[in-house]
């Protein structure tokens, strides 16, 4: 769940904290260019193996990603996210439909597409026999950087991703999380307008995940378009300007994070930390007909439909003098995701 506001009682004073931070974009080069970064129209991908039934991984997908935005492709395992990314990065050809990346058609001009993208694929991709430094060096060369530019970029991303002490370590000697960090760091060496990140933070510890998320935000501020898939919905909620939720190869929800969240039942959760739980207090809550009341020791979570109901309950509880701390939270992207996927599963 995502905190909207948090109020703490400290020495008898109420301290209001806004937990959500905004990251307004600076209008820069890539985002200033007109047109969509990605246009997908009626995309279909069917895997056809000999002696096997055909598997429809993507079924008539259509969406647009604006230049300079962070777009999240979300969905459960097998939803078709990675197949979609593979088509957009020219790794796979679609069965039908069309996709254009930065104006280039993925089938007609795959090289034109590849000239505009950087990709962190879902699999770990690192040269095991090469040092971290040489991993970065070869990547830079493949993307047209010259020797001096490469050295400069190695310096920059080493600091950005905390890789300096590992520069001489071979890929095979790195932990899984570090390998992933190198993989992500590589893509930030070059200034391509579109970056695809397929489960980029998988295997990273919390500290490095934070570093990576911050780096992604920074790149987005420069105007780069970022397309990411993730299972960590908190991450998507923090990063994405817009999201599409996929299930069984189709988009089941699409819009800004707030739009998608508004597709939920709009429930509010009021969490109350109390000095003690009394019968009077419980009566005061129940008399207001909340949807649910969940009691755990001296913490009560009350689920209501409207903000006015939440404030009403809050006022009643305050009057008992037992309130120490409270939080009002709305449905998170994860709640909506689970709800949508579950609803569609039931329907199908």
């Amino acid at each position: 769940m995502q905190n909207v506001t948090s109020v703490e009682m400290e020495n008898g004073k109420e301290i209001l904290r806004l937990m959500r931070t905004d990251h307004p974009k600076q209008a820069l080069d890539f985002s200033l260019m007109s047109g969509a970064a990605i246009e997908v129209h009626d995309l279909v991908k069917t895997y056809q193996k000999r002696h096997h039934k055909p598997v429809k991984a993507v079924r008539g997908l259509s969406f647009t990603v604006r230049r300079g935005e962070i777009f999240g492709l979300l969905g459960p395992n097998g939803a078709g996210k990675t197949t979609t990314i593979k088509i957009l990065t020219t790794l796979l050809a679609p069965t039908s439909g069309s996709a254009r990346v930065f104006g280039q058609d993925v089938v007609a001009d795959p090289l034109g597409v590849r000239k505009n993208i950087c990709v962190v694929i879902q699999e770990n991709a690192i040269e095991l026999y090469l040092s971290v430094c040489n991993n970065l060096r070869t990547f830079g060369r493949f993307h047209g950087l010259t020797g001096r530019q490469i050295d400069g970029q190695i310096d920059r991303v080493s600091d950005l991703f905390g890789l300096r002490e590992y520069l001489n370590e071979k890929g095979m000697d790195l932990s899984g999380g570090l390998k992933r960090r190198v993989q992500v760091a590589k893509t930030f060496m070059v200034e391509k307008p579109i970056v695809f990140l397929d489960e980029a933070t998988t295997g990273m510890d919390a500290f490095n995940k934070r570093r990576t998320i911050d780096a992604i935000k920074e790149e987005s501020r420069k105007g780069r378009t970022i397309v990411l898939t993730t299972h960590v919905l908190d991450e998507a909620e923090e990063l994405c300007d817009s999201v599409a939720i996929m299930n069984h190869g189709r988009i089941i929800a699409r819009g800004s994070v707030e739009d998608v969240k508004s597709m939920s039942l709009r429930l509010l959760y009021l969490t109350l930390s109390l000095a003690a739980v009394s019968d009077d207090l419980l009566r005061a809550i129940h008399i207001r007909n909340p949807i649910a009341v969940d009691i755990k020791d001296t913490t009560i979570e009350v689920t209501v439909r409207e903000a006015t109901e939440a404030l009403d309950v809050l006022a009643a509880v305050r009057q008992t003098g037992l309130l120490r701390h409270f939080e009002i939270t709305s449905a998170s992207l994860e709640d909506v995701f689970l709800q949508l996927v579950d609803t569609k599963e039931s329907a199908s």
Partner: peptide
């Protein structure tokens, strides 16, 4: 096995 093969295929070359 290293996964790098698939990454190569996304590099700007034919």
């Amino acid at each position: 096995d290293n996964g790098i093969f698939y990454e190569f295929l996304t590099y700007p070359m034919t």
